[in-house]
Structures are given as C-alpha cells and as structure tokens.
Simulated scan of single mutants.
Amino acid sequence: MEFDFADLPREARSKLLHSTIVPRPIAWVVTRHAHGGTNAAPFSFFNVVSTEPPLLCIGMAARTDGDKDTLANIRRSGQFVVNLVPMAMAEAMNQTSAEFGPEVDELARCGLATQPSSNVDPPRIAGSPVAMECETFRLVDLDQGGAVVLGRVLAMHLAEEMLLDPARQYVDTPRLGLIGRMHGGGWYARTTDLFEMPRPPKPPR
C-alpha cells in the first residue's frame, strides 16, 4: 500500500515514520537555562551525520506555545551536551521526558548526578557511558515550528571501562548497553542482539 504524504495529516505521517524508522538512538540532551538551572530531555530524531567536521543532528519539534525548553536554550547559548542512554538509566531518561516547566531542574527532580563539562557550560550526566560536548553548527528552522539542530562535537567523554584500547580509540561498543527508540508510545530496543556481516570485497576493475 502506498501512502501519499501530501494527502495525510500530520498525525498519520508521524505514525508511519515513528513505526518504521527504527531503532533510533536517543540523545539525552542537557542544556542550561538563562536563569542558571539545567534542563534534560531525550530526543530520538538523532544521529551522527559527519565525521569531518564531527557533526550530529537532532530534530526538535515545537510545542503548541513555541520552542521546547531544550531548543530555546540552544538558540540562546549555542551549547549542549548529548548523553547516550544505557539500559540501566532507561527509567531515569523516561522520567525526564515529562513536560516540565522551565523552572524545573529535571536532573535534580529525577535524582541524577552530574559532572562538569570541559568546553561548554551545561554539565554531563554522571552514569552515562558516553557524553558529547557540543556547540551549534547550524540551526535549520522548520515551517511548522521547531528546528533541526546540527551540533559540532567538541569533546567526547567515555567511561574508561568501555575502552578496549584508548590509544587506538577502540571502544567495547556492546558493553555500552545502549538502548534505542522503537514504535508506539513506549517501546524501546536493547542493542544486545547483534550479528556480524562482513562487507563484500572491492570488485575487480
């Protein structure tokens, strides 16, 4: 069956996209409010898009009353930290997805400890095995509100026990235990069911 997106309302398009483009990695984004408090929220429209320069992208939809707190903070400061989510922190991540007001510090409310960043003002989440300090590279505003944030990675923090060979940047990726977003209102996937498929050799000329 073909679905012509030009003829579908937003809700229908959203259902199809969310249900098929899976699993999606989760960016657990920490920003700083103008009043000094911190904000934390997860986003699953997220991925790496370039290694030179090192760029990641996050799609941030708008609320009915304007930008979400995360996007408003990024617009103002140009700084944010992307933390990746291990299975052990899934419930805490889920709690920070609630629609709190800007006066609420989600990290404190959910009992999450932080560690200072080296290059940006927002802190990183202690316990996350991977945290990336980022600055805004581009903001692409969307016609219906919200934006796609392109962030330049300034530094990455990796838990030492996740490194097989730090000098050669070998990471024990399965040990990270990260989760991804699936379909529906609350389905997720673990990254533990793996298989290996070598790339085919280069064809002869």
Rank of each mutant, 00 (worst) to 15 (best):
L107Q: 06
S118Y: 11
V81N: 01
R124Q: 03
S118G: 13
E103W: 09
D67C: 07
V104S: 05
M60D: 08
A62D: 07
P123Y: 03
V120K: 00
I125D: 05
E103N: 09
P122Y: 02
E106K: 07
L84I: 00
D69L: 10
T114N: 05
E99N: 12
S128P: 11
S77R: 15
G78T: 04
D65M: 10
V82Q: 04
A126D: 12
P123T: 01
P86F: 03
G78A: 01
A98S: 12
L71M: 01
S117E: 12
M93F: 04
A90P: 10
S118Q: 15
P116E: 11
I74A: 08
V85N: 01
M89R: 07
N119K: 15
N94F: 01
I74D: 09
R124C: 02
T96P: 08
R124D: 04
M89Q: 13
D105L: 02
L112V: 00
V81L: 06
E91W: 10
Q79W: 02
N94P: 11
R109S: 11
N119R: 14
M89E: 09
S117F: 03
D121I: 11
V81T: 02
L84K: 00
T96K: 02
P122L: 00
I74N: 07
F100A: 12
T96M: 05
E103L: 09
P86R: 03
P122N: 02
G127K: 08
F100Q: 07
S97L: 11
R63P: 06
D65K: 14
G78M: 08
E99I: 10
R109F: 12
N119S: 15
D65N: 13
N94K: 01
R109I: 11
E103M: 10
S118L: 12
A108L: 12
M89K: 07
A113E: 14
L112H: 02
E91P: 06
G78W: 04
V85W: 00
M87R: 15
A72Y: 01
A126H: 07
E106C: 06
